[in-house]
């Protein structure tokens, strides 16, 4: 039988966002577009962003991949809508620590993303869970970046 841990990883929140990702579809026009790829499995997440004059974010995505990569990107984009670039970068940092198992207390900023905390028990899936945030961090840090690979992740 499959363990409770792995069933928790595939809880309804993740399956729902994996199947029906939010903020899905091209954003036209978009100031910044970046493609995140996981060359190991072929998953692709393409982010479309507008950073408003007051530094708040509007974001959409397209792509294909496993339930974890789709749900993680969907939940992430849900959280950062209207957030400042600075807050989004902080969120990404907290989230990356969470999936690597480096957090003991879950800060409130993570919101529904805590449903992905189970990933820490499955090292092979960390890159699935961070594909979207890896691309988001890259394009927020340098708007000229057009493609990033999980194999160049720090």
């Amino acid at each position: 039988m499959l363990s409770d841990d792995v069933r928790l990883l595939y809880q309804e929140m993740i399956l729902d966002h994996g199947r029906s990702p939010r903020h899905f579809g091209e954003l036209v026009p978009a100031d910044r577009v970046i493609e995140g790829i996981n060359p190991v499995c072929g998953d692709v997440v393409k982010l479309y962003l507008n950073v408003q004059p007051n530094q708040t974010i509007q974001a959409q995505f397209t792509g294909h991949g496993c339930a974890i990569s789709m749900a993680a990107t969907s939940l992430l984009l849900e959280l950062i809508q209207g957030q400042s670039v600075e807050d989004a970068l902080h969120l990404i940092d907290q989230y990356r620590q969470m999936v690597k198992g480096e957090l003991t207390v879950m800060p409130d900023v993570l919101g529904k993303l805590v449903s992905l905390s189970g990933v820490k028990g499955y090292p092979s899936r960390i890159k699935c869970a961070t594909l979207g945030c890896h691309a988001l961090k890259a394009v927020l840090s340098d708007q000229a970046t057009q493609q990033v690979s999980t194999e160049t992740e720090d």
Binding site: L2, V40, C41, A67, I68, Y122, R125
Partner: peptide, 20 residues
């Protein structure tokens, strides 16, 4: 997605490939 399928099978001791 095959990646999810393969991971769950791995949890049951079964090694198959998923991907392109």
């Amino acid at each position: 997605h095959p990646h999810d399928v393969v991971m769950l099978l791995d949890q049951l001791g079964i090694a198959i490939r998923g991907g392109h």
